[in-house]
Every structure is written in C-alpha cells, then in structure tokens.
C-alpha cells in the first residue's frame, strides 16, 4: 500500500512542477479603461466573439451558452459581472475560455492584451477601502512599469454568491 501512496505523491509533484513553470504569468485583458490579469494556468484558449444562445432565468451576467467545437459551454460577461455599463460587442471582443474545477467557462472581455510576467514582489494586496461592487473579485494589484494591472481572483469571479447558489441548486 505504501508504494501506492508514493506513486500518488509522485504524480502530484509532477503536476505541481508543471504549474511552477506557469507561476507568475498572467493573461491581461481590457475592460473599459482598466487592464486586468488572470493566472495563465486557468486559461484554455481565446476565441473571438460568436453567437451566444440565451438561457432563460439566469443571472444577467450569464449571457448564455456557446458551441465550442461541439462542446457547449456557458459564457459570462465580465463587464456586467463588474456592474459596468453594457456595451455592444465588436471585432475586438474576445471570449477567454478558462477551466476551473474541470468546468469550462467563457469570459467575455473587451479585448485581450498580452501575457505578462508579474513577479510576486510586484503584486500588492487588494485595496481595503471598498469591498462592495466589483472590487471583491480582486486578488491583488500588479505593478508593471508605470501601469497597474488588476489581478482577478477567478474563483470568486466565477463562483461567488449567485454562482454558488446555482452550483448548489445543481447539486441537489
């Protein structure tokens, strides 16, 4: 039995190592005037905006579902999630497909910028002033040169409050 445990641990270490190489890398994108970043390890792919099928009775930021090469995945509009005014989609609008807890979800953003290395020491904690609104999704603030990137806590972005309720209702 001890052998098995060892193997399991090996596997785990391997996984960790793989993630290590992605440590400190962030995909940045733009919404309204600000630049945001999410950890690259969650990102599966980036696609252009495509036809979204409406789902009835979902929170307003859940735009619906898209057909990603035969897989049906839900998409959420990050703008609406941040309680920012809605805006028409254009050719720069992108869907970032992320995978968390083996669930694929698409994030609609105004435009995708680049992949950046932001070392840990350049990241500061989230602002402590305003915990309401969109700022509760902030994991930290990354300083890159003169600019500041808002690093998002993707778990909170996807699963907090309303999302939790949804998840609960599914599990019932």
């Amino acid at each position: 039995m001890s052998d098995q445990m060892l193997h399991a641990e090996d596997g785990f270490n391997g996984y960790e190592e793989q993630e290590d190489t992605q440590e400190g890398k962030y995909l940045t994108f733009q919404i309204a005037k600000e630049e945001y970043g999410i950890e690259i390890r969650y990102v599966t792919e980036i696609i252009g905006i495509q036809k979204v099928t409406d789902l009835p009775d979902t929170p307003n930021f859940v735009k619906g579902v898209i057909n990603l090469r035969g897989k049906v995945i839900p998409v959420i509009d990050v703008r609406i999630r941040f309680e920012l005014p809605e805006r028409e989609y254009d050719e720069r609008t992108c869907i970032i497909v992320v995978n968390i807890n083996s669930t694929s979800v698409g994030l609609i953003v105004d435009s995708v910028s680049e992949v950046l290395d932001i070392p840990g020491e350049d990241i500061e904690g989230p602002p402590r002033v305003n915990r309401s609104g969109g700022s509760r999704y902030i994991q930290g603030l990354g300083k890159v040169g003169e600019s500041v990137k808002i690093i998002l806590n993707i778990h909170r972005l996807l699963f907090e409050d309303e999302m939790e309720q949804i998840m609960e209702s599914i599990q019932e």
């Binding site: 009835p56 057909n67 049906v72 979800v105 949804i166 998840m167 209702s169 599914i170």
Partner: peptide
Amino acid sequence: IKGLSGFVANHPCVSGCTILGDGDISL
C-alpha cells in the same frame, strides 16, 4: 443530447441542449 455545463444547468424548463446542423445551440 448535450448536458448543460453544471455552471448553468438550473432551469427547470430546460433539460439540456443540442447542437443544430448550422452549429447553433438549441435548448
């Protein structure tokens, strides 16, 4: 039949979805 992602499959009137010939999704 395709299951809806656990993320959104909560509507009592929708049991799943399917992909139509033109690639669109139909609930």
